[in-house]
Amino acid sequence: MTGDDFGRLIYLVLLGSVIAGYFLLSNRHRLGHVAQQAAIWGLIFIGAIAGFGLWSDIRHQVAPSQTVFGEERRIEVPRAPDGHYYMTVEVNGTPLHFVVDTGATDVVLTRKDAGRVGLDPEDLQYFGEAHTANGTVRTAPVRLDTVAIGPIVDRNLRAFVNAGEMHDSLLGMAYLNRFERIEFVRDRMILTR
């Protein structure tokens, strides 16, 4: 802490003491009520901070998720607050989080997701190229043994592993075209097979 920082700290402590002293003196006849109000506002403040800090952990349970209607062979996916559609898909028996990308031609896995489904990203041959909004990236072709959403299972699906950095794996048209019908109704995407 430099001398300037220490001086600012002393100034803020003195200013806070003066404000708190004035507030207490002007409300000295109602100190019990003031203490109660201060405790309520303190709890509200702590609750807001806790809610903000935990939101990333609880939003997946609070936000609606995809619904699979097995007998109808239909999947309904709600639009996320960011405007995208996200799906959880079991790849080789492991659930993965995908962003649905109708602008992507293929299914593209992140290196991390590739490792989770049993592919070693270090042993893959990255000789392909993909042109993305962030430029050209190298890709490695792979085959996924199973791709399942509820009772809808596809086998031996062609996909690619991206050599670059990606936040989520992409579910592109190579997979979406396997569905008989793709509809967008208000804030839901409906896939029917």
Rank of each mutant, 00 (worst) to 15 (best):
G172E: 02
T67M: 07
G103S: 02
D120T: 06
V137L: 08
H131I: 12
Q36T: 15
P81Q: 02
A163Q: 13
I58N: 00
F98G: 09
A20T: 15
P151V: 02
D82E: 03
G115F: 06
D123R: 15
R188K: 05
G32T: 12
F179S: 07
A50L: 13
G16V: 04
S65F: 00
P81D: 05
G118E: 04
A20K: 06
R155D: 01
Y85K: 08
L9P: 00
T132A: 12
L54F: 09
A159E: 02
G93S: 10
F98Y: 09
P121I: 07
E180D: 14
W55G: 03
D106R: 02
V89S: 08
V100H: 01
L171C: 09
A80N: 11
F127C: 09
H167I: 13
D4S: 12
S17A: 14
T136H: 04
H33F: 10
F45W: 09
R181E: 10
L171P: 08
A174Y: 03
M166H: 01
D168K: 05
G3N: 10
I19Q: 05
H131C: 05
M1A: 12
F45G: 15
D168F: 11
G42K: 02
S65C: 03
A38I: 14
L191K: 00
S65L: 03
R30Y: 04
P81W: 02
E122V: 12
G53Q: 09
R28T: 11
R79H: 01
R8D: 08
P78R: 03
R111N: 04
E71V: 09
Y175S: 06
G32H: 08
L31H: 06
L54C: 04
R28H: 14
V62F: 05
R143H: 00
F127T: 15
E180Q: 13
Q125K: 12
G164T: 03
L170G: 04
A114Q: 02
A39H: 07
G93R: 10
G16T: 07
